[in-house]
Design a protein around this nucleic acid. Structure first.
Lengths: 222, 222
DNA sequence: TGAGATTATGACAGTCGCTGACATTAGGCA
DNA sequence: TGCCTAATGTCAGCGACTGTCATAATCTCA
């Protein structure tokens, strides 16, 4: 393996990663993708943790050292996408108002991810997972809880962005909750299958839901 | 529970219930209140289903014939309140726009329930439970999932109210999601303890969150 | 009122998610 | 090479939940 001639395209941190750390990362990734495959093939409920562990040739106990429960390994696929969204939000210019910043961040994040994506571990996996979540009550519950944690983070980001104290001003938290609601509604609409598939379809659904936010709150619906 | 001026969802059929049905209702109620007491005393996670069943002197198997899982018995306390809210929403005059109707329904429902409430099974139980939910991840997840089901119902009600096809027009679903988000945010704020206790405190928090909905979505936050 | 059909319940066994404890192995480092 | 630490496997056990079958309680109707 070309150990030396690698230029500094990679962050320095993972150059010096020991064998131990790399191995951990590999088994973690293997667990995630094995779980993903099993869940999609035979359903979440009909897949046991033992199966996932066996597919990667580790013990069940080791599985639970990587993921605190079965839901976590399923939702792990979305973690990257969420992080990317948050990173995007941090970089939105101050000229945008908060709602604009959230909307453009989510759309940009989807666009970037769909361009960057290695088709296997990337955005298609996330989309398949969203579908799976919507039809699996247990997963949906766990996902919704994660969403609310994300909303707290988003509220803090917005508050800092606008120079407000999040403990006093309710607007950041209200906005984050509204944003979460609109997104969830869009995910549900997309996964119910009446719209275009793939990232483009998802983006379109999200945009149309945001477009209806004003009208939905308007005094006159006619 | 003899109050008239309220929307009652009771069909006349249940006037003369057989012994069997009444007995079932009693054990169900006993399970709910025993569970409620145990959860509040020693925490949700440290209470086993066996304990709850034993407290009512039924087998564990019987417990699971009444509730499909442990979360359900905890959230059952909120079911009445939710039903009351939905009934209230159905009766809101057409002169109110959708957002107004939702807001006044939730406030009215809380007010009525806090007036009607037998202190034991009524609104205080619901408030204690909201607190418990917010500090118990498992319960929060289950609760959030129920909320989304409620949102679907609310969206249908709003659509019918406005004479729209909920499959076409996104506004009912978006509005329901926004409403759910604002409420959840209010619950969280109330249960974090920085506001007045009791139903009045909750109502105040809800009102203030709704007041911030417009400002949160506004273009200019200054 | 009493026999037979329903229906709720209990008892039991078993699966699966998840955890603590301890021994074993494998990578890091002097 | 050999010690130290961290990752893993094994095992035992708890608790949530389900299927199955026998029993007991209610209901129905002649």
């Amino acid at each position: 393996m070309a150990a030396q001639p690698v230029p500094s395209a990679e962050p320095a941190t993972c150059r010096v990663l020991g064998l131990r750390e790399r191995k951990k990362q590999r088994t973690r990734d293997a667990l995630v993708s094995a779980a993903h495959r099993l869940f999609l093939n035979q359903g979440y409920g009909r897949t046991t943790v033992d199966e996932i562990a066996a597919a990667v040739d580790v013990s069940q106990r080791t599985f639970f050292r990587y993921f605190s429960n079965k839901e976590e390994v399923a939702l792990a696929v979305l973690a990257d996408a969420e992080d990317y969204f948050v990173a995007t939000l941090r970089e939105r210019p101050a000229s945008e108002n908060p709602l604009q910043a959230l909307r453009s961040s989510i759309v940009l994040a989807w666009r970037d991810l769909s361009a960057t994506g290695t088709s296997d571990t990337g955005i298609t996996a996330a989309l398949e997972l969203i579908q799976l979540i919507e039809e699996t009550p247990t997963l949906l519950a766990a996902h919704l809880r994660r969403i609310t944690e994300q909303e707290r983070l988003i509220a803090e980001l917005i508050a800092r962005r606008e120079g407000l104290d999040p403990a006093v001003d309710l607007r950041p938290r209200v906005l984050a909750a509204v944003f979460g609601g609109v997104l969830r509604s869009a995910h549900l609409a997309w996964s119910s299958g009446h719209s275009a598939p793939g990232p483009e379809g998802m983006i379109a659904v999200i945009e149309s839901h945001f477009d209806q936010l004003g009208p939905a709150l308007a005094a006159d619906w006619r």
